[in-house]
Design a binder for these strands. Structure first.
Length: 153
DNA sequence: GCCAACGTTGGC
DNA sequence: GCCAACGTTGGC
C-alpha cells in the first residue's frame, strides 16, 4: 500500500523546477540531519510513495509540485565529504548515520500556499500545519493526499 | 532580522 | 537520566 509524504526543500537549494530539470527528473534527498526525518526515509519509504514537494524558507512557502519516491534508501554521500556543509565527522562508511532516498519529480503544480492550507479546515492535522512543526519530512494521510491532489492542485 | 519552537549536546 | 545551554528551523 502506498504511503504519502510532504517533503520540504529550500528552493534556493533544490526547487521543483530544479528537480524536473535533473537527469531522469530525479534528485537525491540530501542533507537531512534529523533522526525522525531520516527514519522515514530509511525505514518507512517505499518506491512509489507519493510526495508533496514543498518549498520552505522562501517568500511564499507552500506546495509547488508532485513527486514520488524511487529506489531504495542508501547512505547520504555528503556526510563523508569534509568539504560539504552536511559533513558529519561522527559518521563513517562502515556505520553510516544518515540515509536518504531518491525523489523523482512528476510535475509542477499551481502553488498551494501555506497560508491557504491553514485556512482550510479539511487540512486540520496535516503535519506541516502543526504548531512549531519544523520536521522536513512528514507523513500525509491518504485522505489528505487525495483531497490535496484531486481538489486543491 | 527576529524569535518561537524544537532538537541536540554535554556536564553532573 | 536530568536539564541548562546552545544551535537550528522556518515563518513572518
Amino acid at each position: 500500500m502506498p504511503a504519502y509524504w510532504l517533503m520540504k526543500s529550500e528552493p534556493d537549494e533544490c526547487s521543483i523546477d530544479d528537480a524536473l530539470a535533473a537527469p531522469n527528473k530525479t534528485v537525491p534527498w540530501t542533507g537531512v540531519r534529523n533522526y525522525q526525518a531520516r527514519n522515514f526515509m530509511w525505514k518507512q519509504m517505499q518506491p512509489g510513495d507519493g510526495v508533496l514537494f514543498y518549498h520552505s524558507s522562501c517568500a511564499e512557502p507552500g506546495i509547488y509540485g508532485l513527486a514520488e519516491v524511487v529506489g531504495a534508501p542508501y547512505p547520504d554521500p555528503t556526510q563523508f565529504d569534509p568539504r560539504s556543509k552536511y559533513f558529519d565527522a561522527k559518521s563513517s562508511p562502515e556505520a553510516p548515520r544518515w540515509w536518504l532516498v531518491d525523489v523523482q519529480a512528476r510535475r509542477k503544480t499551481a502553488p498551494l500556499l501555506l497560508t491557504q492550507m491553514r485556512e482550510d479546515p479539511k487540512l486540520d492535522g496535516l503535519g506541516v500545519l502543526l504548531k512549531g512543526s519544523r520536521l522536513s519530512i512528514t507523513p500525509v494521510s491518504e485522505a489528505h493526499w487525495h483531497y490535496i491532489t484531486t481538489t486543491l492542485l
